[in-house]
């Protein structure tokens, strides 16, 4: 089990780590996941703005959009294709947002998921800068000043229910379950696709050696991650925290030395 961060969970019993396998090759772009998520979690409307970007008018993941369906129209070698893909928080094994949160508002649950406790968050915004995927943001519309993101339907998990988005997905593009099983399924699906000649299929987030230690939400993509708005090589910034603290310490020492040096040759006058 790849529980992240070396953090102990706050739950009494550790459950098998759960997550998503989002198989974008079978996503029909119905947005049922987006709507189900909002309905269940009472997420506010995200603004009535027509983007003209294909059929996507929610644009990106944000405090008010916890599932986001991307629509990509592409001219390709054998004609034309329209990729659709439902994005969500990755519930990273090494979650930058959780690491940097100064209040402990972001915690890892007994299911291995990453959740913001709304009543603790003070809105410092540090997590926003620490998520390699641009998942967290501040609730500006309907604003409460706090940061919000997918909770992996923590309340539903506690009641033994699957997340609302997975439940609503008609095509099993969103599959929910124990991460181990999902990874197996994801690899199986990739193999099937590769065998049938879909060379551009690839998994995203399925490698525990990646910069975030593997993701709790694994994706099967049909193009480079950037095309879907995903970073090609995400890294949890706290991975480099050792070096950062070292640099800070060194700088502090230099500064102290500098101050001392400023007095060099000073006599009590």
């Amino acid at each position: 089990m790849r529980h992240g961060d070396g953090q102990t969970t706050y739950g009494l019993q550790i459950q098998p780590r759960v997550g998503f396998f989002t198989d974008t090759s079978v996503c029909i772009g119905c947005k049922a996941c987006e709507v189900a998520c909002k309905e269940w979690n009472l997420v506010p409307e995200d603004g009535l703005v027509w983007s003209g970007n294909s059929y996507d008018n929610t644009g990106e993941l944000s405090a008010n959009t916890w599932r986001h369906v991307a629509f990509i129209e592409q001219q390709v070698d054998d004609g034309f294709r329209w990729l659709m893909s439902s994005d969500v928080c990755k519930h990273c094994t090494h979650a930058g947002c959780l690491d940097v949160c100064p209040t402990g508002a972001i915690t890892r649950t007994e299911f291995g998921t990453v959740v913001i406790q709304d009543d603790v968050c003070n809105g410092c915004g540090y997590c926003v800068t620490a998520c390699p995927f641009g998942v967290i943001s501040k609730r500006e519309i309907g604003g409460d000043g706090g940061m919000h993101k997918c909770t992996l339907c923590y309340d539903r998990l506690e009641d033994g229910l699957e997340p609302a988005c997975a439940k609503a997905c008609p095509t099993k593009s969103i599959q929910f379950g124990p991460l181990d099983e999902l990874l197996e399924r994801a690899h199986g699906r990739l193999e099937d696709l590769r065998e049938s000649g879909v060379d551009d299929a690839r998994l995203y987030g399925a490698d525990e050696n990646d910069g975030v230690g593997g993701m709790g939400s694994v994706f099967l993509l049909l193009d480079e991650p950037e095309v879907y708005g995903l970073p090609p090589d995400p890294v949890d910034p706290t991975r480099n925290l050792g070096a950062i603290w070292a640099a800070a310490a060194a700088a502090a020492v230099v500064l102290a030395a500098g101050v001392a040096f400023a007095f060099a040759g000073e006599t009590d006058g």
Partner: peptide
């Protein structure tokens, strides 16, 4: 409904 209107907010 807000949740549906925001998904296709304008006649095109």
């Amino acid at each position: 409904l807000a949740y549906l209107s925001e998904l296709q907010p304008e006649f095109f």
